[in-house]
């Protein structure tokens, strides 16, 4: 049995008085593709934001491999992680955002090259070459010197994926990456995700409203409802055969 690359143990998260997540337990294996679905406000995005260290859990533990993400050992006791510890542990995780968050003052090539050079200390030449290859792979090899403002939403999102992929993450997080796109641009982005998924080595967590896509790509689907994982299993189990009423009514809204 392979060791999980990501483990959540009884993770809670509240914002002020609002309990968004009420005890999440979760294991993700290397190379596993997991889709997270559920009504808006159910805490889907919060799960992956905590894994990316953008949000601190209120209680519980998150492990990347066997390392505790938010806690570190100090004199035999576990204390809140500092910046250095977070950087060490989150290095294997990458993320693509709903609103792309490309760096507007850099060309798309620079967007991709900057982190490998400064974070991974790669030689500029190597980082440049790898970034060009990655941008070619997402179909933007002819836009290297363009600025993000000159691209369409779908192109921006493909750059964002290339930028994350150049860092060679072992786990890639997708936060509703097609939600901010015009309908006719959704396809090109999903196609790239599908290609990445086929290559297989990387675990992926997709927070998505694209049910057919989730069914197609994901090995496992989680249905999140009112702060807990209400249903999980293979895509066909969850989406097609579940008896959970809230899940059925949630899916019904998408199918109608």
């Amino acid at each position: 049995m392979t060791e999980p690359i990501v483990t959540f143990k009884d993770v809670h998260k509240s914002f002020g008085d609002v309990d968004v997540l009420k005890g999440i337990d979760l294991e993700i294996k290397p190379a596993e593709k997991v889709a997270v679905i559920g009504p808006s406000g159910s805490g889907k995005t919060t799960i992956i934001r905590m894994l990316m260290t953008l949000e601190q859990p209120t209680s519980g533990d998150i492990f990347v491999g066997d390392q505790n993400l938010w806690k570190m050992e100090k004199n035999g006791e576990f204390v809140a992680a500092n910046e250095k510890h977070l950087r060490e542990v989150r290095g294997d995780i990458g993320m693509v955002f709903q609103h792309f968050n490309l760096f507007p003052h850099m060309t798309i090539l620079e967007n991709c090259m900057t982190a490998p050079i400064h974070v991974k200390k790669e030689a500029k030449k190597v980082a440049r070459q790898r970034s060009i290859e990655m941008l070619e792979k997402v179909g933007l090899g002819d836009k290297l010197d363009n600025y993000p403002s000159q691209l369409s939403g779908g192109q921006k999102q493909r750059v964002a994926m290339a930028r994350a992929l150049v860092m060679r993450p072992k786990v890639m997080l997708f936060d509703e990456v097609t939600s901010a796109l015009d309908p006719e641009l959704v396809g090109e982005v999903l196609e790239v995700i599908r290609d990445i998924a086929k290559e297989g080595e990387m675990a992926m967590i997709l927070v998505t409203h694209e049910m057919d896509f989730a069914l197609d790509v994901a090995d496992k689907v989680l249905f999140l409802d009112e702060g807990v994982i209400a249903e999980q299993g293979s895509a066909s189990e969850v989406i097609e055969h579940s008896k959970n009423e809230r899940l059925q009514s949630f899916l019904h809204r998408f199918r109608s």
Binding site: M52, G91, M95, F97, H118, A164, M167
Partner: peptide, 17 residues
């Protein structure tokens, strides 16, 4: 925009970077 800092964090940049 806050998303800029978050994207940089997702690329594992340090606070100073």
């Amino acid at each position: 925009a806050k998303g800029q800092s978050e994207a940089a964090t997702a690329l594992n940049m340090s606070r100073f970077q």
